[in-house]
Simulated assay, not measured.
Amino acid sequence: MFKKLVIVAAASAAVTPAVFAADLYTPVADPPVYTASGFDWTGIYAGAVGGYVWGQSIVSSTGLTDTTTVNPSGGQFGVTAGMNGQFEQFVLGLEGEILWSGVTGTAGIVGLTVDDILTVKSDWQGAIKARAGVAFDQVLVYAHGGIAFADYHARHDDNGVFVSDYRTSRTGWTVGAGVEMAVTENVSVKAEYAYSDFGKWSGTDSLGNAHDFTHHTHAIKAGVNFHF
């Protein structure tokens, strides 16, 4: 009998720690699923932007068949500001920019002598546009579109002597796409393409001659933004 008690006691002593150990064991929880962008694009930002612009401007005398095509090009540099809101991986925003533009081009005026030159210039260009994109942590891929603004100056010179000119400001539309990357918590860099079209319109030059105009541009830009 004593021998049986010793065996039962020994068995109980062996089983009890295992029972306690089972009671104390807590399964390790699965790690959380990564579902959102690591970098939060929500907020206000401002920065600098610059690039290269090229385009086409067509000028014709109203009611006549002579048409002169000018292909202006040049650099741009300016400032931009905007705001973003992030919803999971999707980012929506509004952005404005104003840029000094060194866009200029010349061509011989069709129907006149070889000394008659038409120069087309644009000294500034701006836009107010909506942005929509997808964030991949610190990288944002986006499309943009909105309203474009620009000044427009066409000048006629004959053998280097001023003959007439025409100046106006135009409103048009712009679309494009780009990619932006956060390099720190508060700084990002971007590269984008934009097409801007200022339509077709009529105007009268400084001599009272009527003309029809069209103007559009392409731009490749790079910039840096500071997020607040």
Results as ranks from 00 to 15, higher is better:
213 F>R: 06
135 A>R: 02
65 T>Y: 11
6 V>S: 15
145 G>Q: 08
57 S>D: 12
6 V>R: 15
64 L>V: 11
32 P>M: 01
88 E>K: 07
152 Y>N: 06
122 S>G: 10
160 G>S: 09
13 A>L: 13
47 G>C: 03
181 M>I: 12
168 T>R: 05
43 G>K: 10
67 T>K: 13
27 P>E: 14
64 L>R: 12
47 G>Q: 05
154 A>L: 02
91 V>E: 04
131 R>I: 06
110 V>G: 02
27 P>M: 13
175 V>R: 00
1 M>N: 13
213 F>P: 03
161 V>N: 14
117 I>A: 07
179 V>T: 13
80 T>I: 06
66 D>G: 04
79 V>C: 00
44 I>D: 09
45 Y>D: 04
139 V>R: 00
119 T>A: 12
182 A>M: 12
54 W>P: 05
91 V>C: 11
202 S>D: 15
8 V>D: 14
42 T>C: 10
172 G>A: 11
175 V>D: 03
135 A>E: 07
67 T>A: 06
26 T>F: 05
171 T>W: 06
128 I>N: 01
83 M>E: 05
66 D>R: 11
219 A>G: 07
95 E>Y: 00
41 W>K: 04
188 S>H: 08
110 V>Y: 09
181 M>K: 10
225 N>E: 07
78 G>I: 08
195 Y>M: 07
107 A>V: 01
